[in-house]
Write a protein that binds this DNA or RNA. Sequence first.
DNA 1: AAAACGCGCAACCGCGTCGAA
DNA 2: TTTCGACGCGGTTGCGCGTTT
Length: 274
Amino acid sequence: MGRSPCCEKAHTNKGAWTKEEDQRLIAYIKAHGEGCWRSLPKAAGLLRCGKSCRLRWMNYLRPDLKRGNFTDDDDELIIKLHALLGNKWSLIAGQLPGRTDNEIKNYWNTHIKRKLLSRGIDPQTHRPLSGGGSAAAAAAASGLTTSSTAGFSSPLPAAAAPRPARPAIAIPPNVMFAAPSEDGHSSSGGSSDAPARCPDLNLDLDLSVGPPCSPPKTPAAAASTPTSQQQRAATICLCYHLGVRGGEGCSCKTASPATAGFRFLRPLEEGQYI
DNA sequence: AAAACGCGCAACCGCGTCGAA
DNA sequence: TTTCGACGCGGTTGCGCGTTT
């Protein structure tokens, strides 16, 4: 029993969007706003799947999109965020105003991977490439590696990283950044190779563990004092201080005295890892 | 000049998550 | 509590274009 299709495929266009379709979509969203993507195509007179409309709008038509080249600062920010978040492109995009997750994902796969490999850094683990590194780097840089899915060992393995609350950057509760868990071990999935991760990585991040950026859903939840276990279970909000973009996009920097109990995490030291 | 090749980007697909019923 | 529909995300595909042979 398969999943039902997201839309009636028999009467939907696929492939590249035409100017007319773009105009229809823009006009409709300007008039009615985003949302209800499933019904949008019909309402807008488009023979497209709702998902396709959403993707087109989000990745291409949105007026606040920043087109054009990434700067070196952007590159470094993306690299840092990827080291921290793994392939969480939407979270990374959230720190780059005007950029989309798809754009960053593509840019990573086409440019940054190569850039890191040329530096002798494994783009997936952010560790120096081991043994025969230059040859491996050269081979990888020439495109001979790597499926982004095969053997991926990101700092946040997908299997161990349930999706965080959106839209603020929120890190899965089982991820600890440079701060030992109660048992003194990484809790990021128990991978045996974890201690070797990112040995030279100093992200220069101030990370705070505290309440979610968005208000708690119930007063009770807000009022309760978390136990350490609950703290781990709670959404972890990260206030970034990455170059000039310090903490932007995160409401926690304006947080109330309730944030006084936050635990600020220091940058990684020698031998520490994510 | 033409064909082959490689790269980059837009779009699609399938799955996970969330919220409403 | 369970089910179902919709949304959003990450991975993958395929086309168009530029470069090389």
